[in-house]
């Protein structure tokens, strides 16, 4: 495949992007469609814990919630994956045995990526050998901003190779890329280098996922699909806390890429508190009563 010249910049109309997002957000999704959207969003969650204080106990609790989000409604969909640090992969893998919930692991010296390449590759190989089905890597933002695009490209390709069978999600950390042009360029670069998914953020940098950034990335995915016939997945992560936001994201995906992307194979939410808000909204739709977090389990 011929790669584009990454020294060329594709201009992005920031005002246009913001306005398109605003117009899509004005769409009203109610009643049955809302319930359907809420359940779909639930099935797309990468249920995440990425704290220095994570322990096996915390991860086990997270996995239990992933398997059965709300015991009062047993027929709810499960989340798509559980996302943890490499050291916790084996715990999660054991807990999720017999389900179709994937174990995703961040790797490559997450969240900064500031470790030598060989260590980042070892990190990745370790996570895969522990049983991770998906790897969330971070790109070298410093090198990218420095204009060392080939270096970033080669690193992604090397991590992809280290992943083997595991799916690779490439975190662009858009909060550190400053412009939408850079977001577009990093998206193109990641997809050409072998990403299966492109992901906005680590969740450790503010701003995390925003809708304009997501729209730009989705358009990059669309153009890549037209060019290569390959469907790349999208994962906004960080800062998505409410069901309302989640539904807005689904609308943006549907209108940019179409229904083929509206499933957990091609779209994920990286989130932790979103799960409970979705559950509260689903119960609200069923009972008609506004809900309280007091009646939903933590994590």
């Amino acid at each position: 495949m011929k790669h584009p010249d990454f020294n060329q910049t594709i201009p992005i109309d920031e005002v246009g992007v913001t306005e398109r997002v605003a117009r899509l957000n004005s769409r009203s999704i109610k009643k049955d469609s809302k319930v359907q959207a809420l359940k779909l969003a639930l099935s797309m969650i990468d249920h995440t814990t990425l704290e220095g204080s994570d322990s096996p106990g915390k991860v086990i609790q997270l996995c239990k919630k992933a398997r059965q989000p709300h015991p009062a409604i047993p027929d709810l969909p499960t989340v798509a994956a559980v996302c943890v640090y490499p050291r916790m992969v084996s715990v999660a893998k054991k807990e999720l045995k017999g389900t179709d919930i994937n174990v995703a692991s961040v790797a490559t010296a997450f969240p900064s990526g500031q470790a030598p390449l060989f260590m980042r590759l070892e990190d990745t190989k370790f996570a895969v050998s522990e049983g991770a089905d998906e790897i969330d890597m971070v790109i070298s933002r410093g090198a990218f901003l420095n204009g060392e695009f080939s270096l970033v490209f080669d690193e992604i390709a090397a991590v992809k190779e280290a992943c083997g069978e595991a799916h690779l999600k490439v975190i662009l950390e858009t909060g550190e890329l400053h412009t939408l042009e850079n977001v577009r360029k990093a998206s193109d670069l990641a997809m050409h280098a072998g990403a299966d998914f492109i992901k906005t953020s680590t969740g450790k940098v503010s701003p995390a996922a925003t809708q304009p950034v997501t729209l730009v990335m989705l358009e990059a995915i669309r153009d890549f699909y037209y060019k290569t016939d390959k469907m790349i997945g999208m994962k906004p992560a960080g800062g998505i806390r409410t069901a309302k936001q989640a539904i807005q994201y689904l609308v943006i995906v549907k209108e940019t890429l179409g229904a083929a992307w509206l499933n957990k194979k091609y779209f994920r939410f990286g989130a932790s508190s979103l799960t409970n808000d979705l559950l509260m909204q689903i119960v609200k739709q069923e009972t008609g009563h506004y809900q309280s977090l007091d009646y939903f389990s933590n994590d």
Partner: peptide, 8 residues
């Protein structure tokens, strides 16, 4: 109705 049903 809403004052009395709200779970929170």
């Amino acid at each position: 109705e809403h004052f009395s049903t709200h779970m929170d």
